[in-house]
Design a protein around this nucleic acid. Structure first.
Lengths: 196, 196
DNA sequence: AATTTCATGTAACCAGTTACATGATTCA
DNA sequence: TGAATCATGTAACTGGTTACATGAAATT
């Protein structure tokens, strides 16, 4: 017993974090059952297309995710057209999605994965609720402020050595993050006002 | 003769567009000769790190780029420490970089590769000159405005069907691009004032 | 009759991530 | 003496891109 659990603790495949594409797919499927083609449409027709992409990415991804047990495909019979595989979240899928959405906002997220953070935000409200979405947004603002400090320092320090264009690009970064923070603060207010 | 050129036109390996990482590497090397380790430092110490990354990306990239003839590595002898490979741009390298920087700003660039655009901007000034940088920035603003229109339309159309959170995320996108355009307009003014 | 839409996929290629390896030198 | 720095790389894995393939139904 003791041995067993020790053993399994250390051999259990720690499921790798869901990629951004996997997050997008799980999130969309969590809203309603969808086929690969449905997903393809969402990506090509909406700004969601900012994430993927092409059949060559989506169909293999669906297969991988199904193999890992997070979604389950059912073939729609009784259709005039070519049969569709319609995917639904499994219990593990729902849990995995919740876990993914519950991750704290890290420095690295802010530096490298702002898109991913935005994607989390989109699905978070309906799955984790307003309360936790607000916590997320506050973390987001905090992390951005911290990063902004270091960017501003860099700009001031750079004064001499850096090129004009490098400095201007840095300022682009600063202004982008400022815009992100402004947005988040506005949304926080909006969600708090909406407390009805 | 006629045949030859027809033949070569259709078999010449059209050199694939430089990846963003390759652009960053070429750009940095164009400023001064650098070793892999030098590049690694730039990426880890400056906001340039927004692009790569790790030795596992940079060293193989350097090799590939050298094989394609755009850079040339020279071993620094006469050093106490382990010898360094210091890379310099070749003539083809300079040309390839210029070509890459001269690409027009496309819709897809704005939607998927804003980072790449910013990176181009960083190196553009010193390589293509102020005139062409200004053209670039104007194109950038135009493309953004066009994309913003479609994003705003989406937001208005979506009014009913979309979720609250989806709408808010869309607004994040809109505000981000607005910030990009504001930045570009400011830089245009600054560069024009600087016409000294 | 031709094109677009519905619908799903495969295969080759390329490149990035993670983790590991090596080993000398300098600094605390 | 141990850690950090200088300096370069490899190997396995993963997954995205591009291009191709198929074929029926609906639309123009």
């Amino acid at each position: 017993m003791y041995y067993d659990s020790w053993y399994s603790m250390h051999t259990m495949k720690t499921s790798p974090t869901l990629s951004t594409l996997a997050l997008a797919i799980l999130g969309l499927i969590s809203q309603r059952s969808r086929s690969g083609y449905d997903l393809l449409k969402v990506f090509s027709d909406t700004p969601m297309g900012h994430f993927s992409s092409s059949p060559g990415a989506i169909y293999p991804a669906l297969k991988r995710i199904e193999e890992s047990g997070l979604i389950k495909g059912d073939i729609e019979t009784e259709r005039p057209l070519r049969p569709r595989q319609v995917y639904t979240l499994t219990k593990q899928g729902k849990e995995a999605l919740k876990r993914r959405l519950s991750q704290p906002v890290t420095h690295d997220d802010v530096v490298w994965r702002v898109d991913d953070l935005l994607l989390r935000f989109v699905f978070m409200g309906n799955i984790l609720g307003r309360e936790r979405t607000l916590r997320f947004l506050n973390e987001f603002v905090e992390r951005i402020e911290a990063y902004l400090s270091s960017l501003r320092e860099q700009r001031n320090a750079q004064q001499e050595n850096g090129s004009l264009y490098g400095r201007l690009a840095l300022e682009h970064g600063i202004e982008s993050y400022q815009a992100d923070a402004r947005w988040a603060r506005r949304v926080i207010k909006e969600l708090q006002a909406d407390e009805s």
